[in-house]
Amino acid sequence: MNPTTYPIAKEGFIFIIPLLALTLFFLLIGYLILGIVFLFLFLFSLFFFRNPKRNPPKDEKAIVSPADGKVIEISSIYEEKFLKKDVIKISIFMNLFNVHINRAPITAKVENIKYTPGKFLPANSRDSSIKNEKNTLLMATQIGFQFLLVQIAGIIARRIVCYAKKGENLLKGEIVGMIRFGSRVDLYIPKDICEISVKIGEKVKAGETILGYLNEV
């Protein structure tokens, strides 16, 4: 089975298995309070690393959210490092209780992946897009439209996981990676190829919530 299809993200097992063992150990030797504490941590780890099945919309032009969470920024900027053009930037903040699996917003090919070390500012701050540790995926649709998906670490998140590989073709809604313990995903799409329908403050689900539509595919 592909690890991205597990109901629990594989990165969670290094927390889940020891916590389960400690829970059983303390309960068996009669340390009820410690057993309950570790049981709570075990259950929270199961909850945090959950990987629910998602059903992307069939409309080929639909752009779906790459992350669960809340839309905290929609802005028009000039992206100067990769795309070198005017783009719409959509930022989604994932709090501790959101699913932290990241998904492809559009069916596309991964043309490049660049990891950038950085700080660990709160992921809901504007500066985090620029200063924080991040992983940038340059992707292109079948007809050559390029866009960026950026995984950004936060003040608690200290590990960005990327399953996608350079040269890989990803379907809309397919898992790209995850970020542990509170983080942010930025999406940069050229202004001339899309219409954005989502609003700041809206709660979104990765792989399902429609952020907008491509003009053509």
Rank of each mutant, 00 (worst) to 15 (best):
A123I: 02
I77Y: 09
I106V: 15
K70R: 05
I113L: 15
I106E: 15
N95T: 13
A108K: 02
I113G: 10
F82I: 00
G118E: 04
V87L: 02
E80Y: 11
A67E: 08
G118W: 10
R103L: 12
S91A: 13
E80N: 15
A123Y: 02
G118C: 00
K81E: 12
E79F: 10
I92F: 03
K81L: 06
T107E: 14
Y115G: 05
K70L: 03
F120I: 02
K109T: 12
E80P: 05
T116H: 07
S91G: 08
I74V: 09
I74P: 01
A123E: 05
D86L: 11
K114W: 09
E79S: 02
P117Q: 05
A108P: 04
A67Y: 07
G69H: 06
K109D: 10
F93N: 04
T107G: 12
I101P: 15
E79T: 08
F120M: 07
M94H: 02
K89Q: 13
I72K: 09
E73T: 12
G69A: 01
A108D: 08
K89G: 01
P117I: 04
D68P: 04
K81N: 12
K85Y: 05
T116V: 11
K114F: 07
G118R: 01
K81G: 01
K85D: 06
I101M: 14
P122K: 04
F120K: 07
K89T: 08
P105A: 15
I101S: 13
N98W: 04
S91N: 06
E80T: 14
N102F: 08
F97Y: 10
P122Q: 01
P122G: 01
K89A: 05
Y115H: 13
I88C: 05
K109W: 04
N112I: 10
G69Q: 03
A104P: 02
M94E: 06
S75H: 11
T116L: 11
F120Q: 05
A123M: 04
K109Y: 09
I77P: 14
E79P: 03
K84S: 00
F120T: 02
D68F: 06
P117E: 11
V87F: 03
I101Q: 13
K114H: 05
E79Q: 03
T116D: 02
G118N: 01
I101E: 14
L96V: 15
F82E: 06
N98D: 15
K114C: 03
P105F: 03
L83F: 07
A108R: 03
K81F: 04
I88R: 14
S75P: 09
K85R: 11
I74L: 10
F93M: 08
V71C: 07
Y115T: 10
V99Q: 05
G118H: 01
I101N: 13
E111W: 02
L96N: 08
A123T: 01
I88Q: 09
F82S: 06
E80I: 11
I88M: 11
L121V: 00
L121P: 01
